[in-house]
Design a protein around this nucleic acid. Structure first.
Lengths: 342, 342
DNA sequence: TTTAGCACTCATAATAAGAGAGTGCTAACA
DNA sequence: TGTTAGCACTCTCTTATTATGAGTGCTAAA
């Protein structure tokens, strides 16, 4: 069982290491104003903390460094949330002065600003579209055999995709089809589009359109493509500034990870509601072994639709980052809810 | 004046250095099969080449390294274009099996494949849109005061932007407006859109629509936003694999450069027709001091519309990269011209 | 004109010696 | 019993010293 003093020492060690990136020794700790014990006392407690696995020594006669378990305990029990200063609040709020229907821009800007505030890498998962409802469908023929399908959703998102026109389909067929689609599909959530097309629409098309089956399958395919949420990044290269990544070998893995959206997507999508901190190996990913990922979800109304994340070294300013991410996610939820849920 | 032998030696030095990244000495050169002179002879020629500034020594007693001037001469006069092998041709051609109207995808894929073939960073500037012609305009109201403007061009590109609806504008106004816009603007190049709106359309709108001036200015603003060509990247982190960038300081500048699209855009847009090689300081950019940039333009018909670029260390496989970039740019021109210019 | 030979240079690697920060342990102290 | 002072010990890091060797420039011979 840990004494209060030991916990205090653990906390000071971690705080210090987060600041300096240097192993911290008993002597330098004892010299701190807020620490009232002698270096020997601290050494005893350090030995205990090390036995329990909260801190470790890079080598026999060096200061101590927090272990992942130490960070974990720190995040779970020792953290006092850092209050954001006026400046920071201002900066975050400035994200939302933009025209809010330009959702992509807002999200993009969030990522940029968050990375600038933290000096880490920010990743924002744009709001999920599957619950967006169709506002308008359009087919624009480009040539004899190609056309563009356009879907506008109630949130102002526009999806478009090219598809091949079957033969024997003429302009009036297309017009009829667009009419039918709009009559029947406006208000339908994107996630149900495919089903509706094949269950309800197919019947109507059969009646009115030549070669309806080819046309429908082409269109459906165009529309069906996974409307995946998009990732936005800020400060992709910030990791290069961290002293623990002064070694090119270490950085390569991480940079590759960041740059290859797929892996990041897997990591970010499907985070639980609220704030989550994943430290080092907890990320279950070799590239992230020396990184921590702090995520926060945001919602429209009660439904979680996206996430914000900060990727930094395990030696991260947890307290400050958590506050920032928390604040932004709430702001985001507020803004989106106001917009789409009132 | 350089003798043939000196030029040959220069070429072998550069070829060797490109392969090994190590300064090359007279002895190791003399040992090569294709070199028939003694190391002493080579030393004499090297001294000459150094006097003329084509090669230099990192320090007094090390082998020689090509200077920028050396690379320049090499690229301009010594290069024998490397024939692409079957595999490479296949790979590049595979880019164009995709449905060609999915232009963004094709361009994206080009960047990826080019970076994989070269192990450098590939940048592709998507085709310019300013000569695209309007195929269809659409306004989709989202709420009382917001709407989405959509422009579809004849190349299948879809631009969309949110804008604020002025008060006193009702659904029938919008419908009228869309009709007028489509009647008058289909076939107009995007670059002339703004002018046409304010010269021809404004007159018509005045007659038919409430609050036409507010509506027009809102719409025009939405439509006016610079439809800037988009950059696509492949292998952003490939630079990390280059031994000359094993130092984090050096890499930071370059990575920042790559990541901040703006600078890259300035560098790539406005390249001349055909292949261009910019070596080191020729790029006029501190971050690119140790990099070379190989660019090739591609066209639709006779008109240059975009560019392909490879960014690598000055110690780049010029011969191979030039061939690849050249081949791809011609393929691209062919594909686009077939599509849009026939 | 080319090449062999040789002294010279200088980065790199290996080795040794100190300095210093930090530890663990013991014994004294409150 | 918990805390602290003292001290020997460990181990990294820095600096100095010394080979080692690849490579050069120069001279003289072929």
């Amino acid at each position: 069982m840990l004494t209060d003093r030991q916990l205090f020492i653990l906390q000071v060690i971690i705080d210090d290491f987060i600041r300096s990136a240097q192993p911290v020794g008993s002597r330098s700790l004892a010299e701190k104003e807020e620490v009232a014990f002698s270096s020997a006392t601290i050494r005893n407690d350090m030995a205990e903390l090390e036995d329990l696995g909260f801190i470790e020594k890079p080598h026999t006669s060096s200061g101590r460094v927090p272990s992942e378990k130490g960070y974990r305990y720190y995040v779970d029990h020792l953290l006092h949330p850092k209050k954001l200063n006026h400046q920071e609040v201002e900066t975050i709020n400035s994200i939302f002065v933009d025209r809010i229907y330009e959702l992509e821009k807002v999200v993009q800007k969030s990522a940029r600003i968050l990375s600038e505030l933290t000096n880490y890498t920010a990743i924002v998962l744009g709001p999920e579209l599957k619950d967006n409802k169709v506002k308008k469908l359009q087919i624009v023929p480009l040539s004899k055999d190609a056309a563009i399908a356009i879907i506008v959703t109630d949130t102002g998102h526009v999806e478009n995709r090219a598809f091949t026109l079957p033969e024997q389909v003429n302009a009036s067929d297309i017009e009829k089809m667009v009419n039918i689609l709009n009559e029947r599909l406006v208000g339908v959530p994107l996630s149900e589009l495919h089903d509706k097309l094949y269950k309800e629409i197919v019947v109507l098309l059969r009646r009115h359109i030549n070669n309806y089956d080819a046309m429908l399958s082409m269109f459906a395919e165009a529309v069906d493509v996974q409307v995946s949420e998009k990732l936005f990044f800020g400060g992709k290269t910030n990791m290069l500034n961290q002293p623990e990544f002064h070694d090119v070998e270490k950085i390569r893995l991480v940079m590759n990870m960041i740059d290859q959206e797929e892996g990041m997507y897997r990591l970010i999508s499907g985070v639980p509601t609220g704030i989550q901190v994943k430290i080092g190996k907890e990320n279950q990913n070799a590239a992230m072994e020396h990184c921590s990922l702090i995520t926060a979800s945001y919602s429209i109304g009660d439904e979680q639709v996206g996430a914000i994340a900060i990727l930094g070294p395990t030696r991260m300013e947890y307290s400050r980052v958590i506050s920032l991410v928390d604040f932004l996610s709430h702001d985001m939820t507020k803004a989106l809810t106001n917009l789409y849920h009132s």
